[in-house]
Design a protein around this nucleic acid. Structure first.
Lengths: 282, 282
DNA sequence: CGCATGGTTGAGCGGGCTCAAGGTGAGTGG
DNA sequence: CCACTCACCTTGAGCCCGCTCAACCATGCG
């Protein structure tokens, strides 16, 4: 089950800017339910913070199964300037968060990988400050405010884990600022690839140094604040050095050590090593 | 009372990298208490989210008065790699959060202004990913985990406001990524100045378009991922155009409209306009 | 005074951008 | 089956913004 088996109406949502999911749709609409509710990748990530119990995992899996959608093309999930009504969580595939300037320049400010929460803050702001776009093959779960409130009352440790997730995401944002601001093109691309590979590995999506990379070189460039042309040249350079292979949306890292060295990459900021002590707001 | 009247032992903490405040110091140590506990600037910011009641303001003011320190030189508040034991809140003056690369390059990833919370995430991570440095004249309050827990139990709306604050800070981080990644030097500096002025105005620290700017040009440059030399040239340019005056750590904006235009600045991301609906995790 | 910190200015260069063109593969319809 | 389209990748030539390195000035403080 590499790609979602359940494909619903969201597929027919085109790339029109005004198309927004999770809006004006009552939560009791008849969405296809997964037959079985497998342990979601999000649970794996929360385990790094505080291991979840079996009942907690089941509640979480249930909450993530109520409203699931799959897209096959690039689809706007949340548009810059609107208010969000649901919290979105990546089950499969990628999403990217981006801001567009009046002159058309774009900057990708975050990639959301399987198991990631599409920024907790969207529910608190009256209007979201950036656009979240689902990439082809993405499967995403929506959790309503009400469901979140119930989750919080019934399973406060899960909610706490979600907050921890949002802080980990903030740490990634900070590292991206270093990336864009301080590193040269080579190190910049290398660092982003290191981060992606490490994050995918944390949820078990890295096999033999290979993983899916459902983004274009233009996306990679916009995340690194680089031109597509220069991104291409930089990738080619890394390829010529025998460090990576990137073909057919599949990334293979041949020499992670060297790649991490030229990137100045240290995975500490991802907070995947040791769990926090979790005595906060308990 | 422009600068803190109470100056304690922290002043004698030098800029040694290993010096860290808020560690190994019991919270019942005899710190000088403020005679009166004025309405903290933090309360003003929380009001943008959800207006606080009089009792809430008093509880908050009390919590912020338990552990207050003032520094006269640059002082490390939290060192990259250590665990934080207290949440720090700016009462007066500035702090900057920065990351240092092995080669010595630095990137400032955030300025914390009066009323700001020095990133909520510090308490959740086992080790902080960046260094927080107090600038000369800063006065900062520390809140222990225990006190936070009590605050949460007694005044959940305040805690919720703090979370909202942390999400607003994340939005600022994202905007900084645009700034560094997409804008030219002129617009970059202009945008940062616009943001600072707007944030200071939100807590009443802007008088007649003038405000204190207790940072060096090198700091400004590191926040914008620019050389000191080029920062200087850019500032001079803005000055020659009659847009700003920057002298003696005092910034005066003469033409905010033009400055905002060349910066492409819109204050929406600061979330200071309309309160969120606040029906979250209530 | 002497030193430190921060601000100012100049000359030269190089990394990444701009603009432009061509290549490649998958999907589509005749 | 080919021709067509579209999205994406690739490559080249030239240039400019911001960096590097270096020196000098201004201020304040012991």
């Amino acid at each position: 089950m590499l790609l979602g088996a359940t494909v619903d109406a969201a597929d027919r949502i085109s790339r029109m800017p005004s198309q927004v999911m999770f809006r004006e749709q009552p939560s009791d609409a008849p969405y296809p339910m997964d037959v079985e509710t497998p342990d979601p990748l999000l649970a794996r990530k929360l385990d790094y913070h505080q291991p979840l119990s079996r009942p907690e995992r089941e509640v979480l899996a249930k909450a993530l199964s109520l409203d699931v959608r799959t897209v096959q093309r690039r689809t706007i999930l949340l548009e810059q300037g609107v208010a969000a009504t649901k919290l979105a969580i990546m089950l499969e595939g990628w999403a990217c968060r981006q801001k567009t300037l009046p002159d058309g320049r774009r900057q990708i400010v975050a990639f959301y990988l399987p198991g990631d929460v599409c920024d907790f803050g969207v529910l608190m702001a009256s209007a979201i400050d950036s656009t979240i776009e689902l990439l082809p093959g993405a499967r995403v779960a929506g959790i309503s405010r009400d469901a979140l409130g119930m989750l919080n009352r019934g399973q406060p440790r899960i909610t706490r884990g979600l907050w921890w997730e949002s802080q980990a995401a903030a740490a990634i944002q900070r590292e991206w600022m270093i990336n864009i601001g301080q590193r040269g093109a080579r190190a910049r691309i290398a660092h982003l690839l290191c981060e992606i590979v490490t994050r995918l590995d944390a949820v078990g999506l890295l096999k033999d140094g290979r993983c899916a990379l459902p983004i274009t070189q233009a996306d990679l460039g916009e995340a690194c604040a680089m031109t597509t042309a220069h991104t291409n040249r930089t990738l080619r350079q890394l390829r010529d050095e025998g460090l990576i292979t990137l073909r057919n949306e599949c990334l293979e890292v041949h020499d992670m050590t060297t790649l991490a060295t030229i990137a100045g990459f240290s995975s500490a900021y991802l907070q995947l090593t040791s769990p926090g002590d979790g005595i906060f707001l308990g």
